[in-house]
Nucleic acid binder design. Structure first.
Length: 554
RNA sequence: AGUCGCAUGGUGUAAUGGUAGCACUACAGAUUUUGGUUCUGUCUGUCUUGGUUCGAAUCCAGGUGCGACUACCA
């Protein structure tokens, strides 16, 4: 029974190209980040796509940094981008920088000048903008458009030699000032920028523009399928034009719609703003949609990959529900995360028929979904912490937890029955009194009693403390970019809550970066800010909570 | 206004002229020593008008809606 997996539009194109012999050496893709920020979940889509396609069709995928703008790019970003890609589980075939090709690109530019397809323009940025025309009106040709090849060659060389100030001259392609596609109205190929480049230092003072770097870099590397996002679709004719004029390897560009996630923003500019203005603690703040933020939050790489693959790709605008990402995170973590008990909002429970001062050790499995995960020992005594919300003085019919005369199972331990409780002057429950059923111990229960509910607990004398960072969605609205005014007005003021919790002893020294399930509560990840004896846990994602849902309805 | 692109349940994505399917969500139920997991079931969709055809989500034409493009950013 052959399972028919439908192809996305890029796979269809590739399979057709392979079938018609268009790619005799196999396919080649590339992931081309600009090192001016951190990677986010949108980039993850592109990574999964480019590396995934190369793998699926036995091709190659390069990492290439698009570093043609020295004023925004930094080595720090290069390193973090590489780390993120590897963490996601991918390894590039070879690593390149557009800046490696600066000399070659310069030669290409001279080639176009010689062919009468490029010229040096003395116009200012304002003049160029003013003569560009509009969406409905053609542009005007520059007075410098018809310089001789010799003059152009000489001037371009002089630009490179640093004989002109920033902005004094540019090199432009000679295409068509009346073209309906504005990008083809003599686009700028090179500008003068006397800035220090993170790799080439001060070797260059002229830098190629995106349009004269990206396609040429693809071609040099023999990229067969150059995949980018939809907003570059207008660049494709220019991409093709340069390659054709130069007569170099015919790379082809294909566009897909970028991934948007609800309740967050994805533009690097906006993310940078959140970081710089201190709305978040950094690029890897667990609330950020960055790869590093999600890693710190405790999202497994496999969940991010699963998310990208589940969502798929197409050419239409979209906003994917954050709930789908969270579903993928839960699905991965359910299989892999060890379970521990943690009490977030404690109330004391005393077992009146369990000898004061007595302690016993109970075996507790780490993960019911994974028999190889093993188990740990859990201390038990007559004084426990349980979750305040697991007790109700006057419980409704379907409340399967503790209340006067009600019975529950203490996870991994005994069945108990509530016999009494004590309140303070304000009416807050102070202590709960129970009797336990000695024959009901987990694993050797001979009591014959069947209870509906099971709750988590901690032996009070053994419990330790942890700091909790409870995270919620970064924005209050589904699509902050769609709202009027500044997107920051829509930040969720409650996206971070600090809290304390009691934890079982075996959780106190868990290595940072480990994600675990706090039984019945949710997944948490030990943060790198943890200190010996004072762990810090980030909330990763909650468990599905059918009871909470039930209550909402009432 | 010009050019280009895109319209399938609440969300995302299939069906490539032949039964509109899958995942998430929502809802109902079964199982459960996590009100978790797992399992079963239910609701909800082809932007519009016309054309071609035995047959149209699919092809054609018009309309409507949405998005992108007028950076010496990528």
């Amino acid at each position: 029974m052959a399972e028919e997996k439908s192809l996305n539009f890029l796979e269809e194109i590739i399979e057709a190209d392979l079938a018609t012999g268009k790619c005799p050496d196999g396919i080649q893709t590339r992931f081309p980040p600009e090192p001016n920020g951190y990677l986010h979940i949108g980039h993850a889509s592109s990574i999964v796509l480019n590396f995934g396609l190369a793998k699926k069709y036995g091709g190659r995928c390069n990492l290439r940094f698009d570093d043609t703008n020295p004023s925004t790019e930094e080595t720090e970003y290069v390193e973090n981008i590489q780390q993120d890609i590897q963490w996601l589980g991918y390894q590039w075939d070879s690593r390149h920088f557009a800046s490696d090709y600066f000399e070659q690109l310069f030669q290409f530019a001279q080639q176009l000048i010689r062919a009468g397809k490029a010229y040096v323009d003395d116009s200012s940025a304002e003049e160029i903008a003013a003569t560009k025309g509009s969406l409905t009106e053609p542009g005007k040709e520059s007075p410098y458009r018809n310089r001789s090849v010799e003059d152009n060659l000489k001037l371009f060389q002089a630009m490179r030699a640093g004989q002109f100030a920033d902005g004094e001259k540019v090199l432009r392609a000679k295409v068509d000032m009346a073209h309906p596609n504005l990008l083809l109205r003599d686009p700028i190929m090179y500008r003068i920028k006397k800035a220090h480049h993170h790799r080439t230092g001060d070797t260059w003072c002229i830098y190629p523009m995106y349009d004269f770097a990206h396609g040429q870099s693809d071609s040099i590397e023999q990229v067969t399928h150059s995949i980018c996002t939809l907003e570059f679709i207008h660049h494709r004719p220019l991409y093709d034009w340069f390659i054709e004029q130069l007569g170099i390897f015919p790379s082809h560009q294909y566009e897909f719609a970028r991934r948007n996630l609800s309740y967050t923003v994805m533009s690097k500019r906006k993310l940078l703003q959140l970081v710089q203005e201190g709305h978040v603690a950094g690029w890897d703040d667990p609330r950020m949609p960055t790869i590093s933020g999600m890693r710190r939050r405790g999202y497994p790489a496999a969940a991010i990959r699963q998310f990208c693959e589940t969502v798929g790709i197409a050419k239409r605008e979209n906003v994917v529900d954050l709930g789908l990402l969270e579903f993928c995170v839960r699905e991965q973590l359910n299989k892999t995360a060890n379970r521990y008990m943690m009490v977030l909002n404690p109330v004391k429970l005393i077992i009146t028929n369990y000898p004061e001062g007595q302690t016993e050790s109970l075996e507790a499995e780490y993960n019911p979904e994974d028999t190889h995960a093993g188990s740990r020992e859990l201390p038990f005594s007559n004084t426990l912490w349980i979750e305040r919300e697991d007790f109700m003085e006057a419980p409704p019919k379907k409340f399967f937890r503790l209340g006067p005369k009600l019975m529950v199972r203490l996870k991994h331990a005994y069945i108990i029955e509530c016999t009494d409780f004590k309140k303070d002057a304000e009416g807050t429950v102070q202590e709960i009194y129970c009797r336990y059923i000695p024959e009901s111990r987990s694993g050797s229960d001979t009591s014959g009693i069947h209870v509906k509910g099971t709750i988590h607990w901690l032996s009070a004398p053994h419990a330790q403390e942890a700091d909790l960072r409870l995270y919620d969605r970064l924005f209050r609205v589904e699509n902050p970019s769609d709202e009027s005014g500044d997107f920051k007005e829509y930040l969720n003021p409650d996206s971070l809550h600090h809290s304390k919790a009691y934890i079982e002893p075996s959780l106190a020294a868990i290595p940072s970066g480990t994600t675990f399930q706090a039984l019945r509560k949710g997944y948490f990840c030990a943060d790198r800010d943890s200190q010996a004896g004072q762990p810090v846990f980030n909330s990763t994602v909650g468990l599905k909570d059918a009871w909470a849902k039930e209550q909402k309805k009432a």
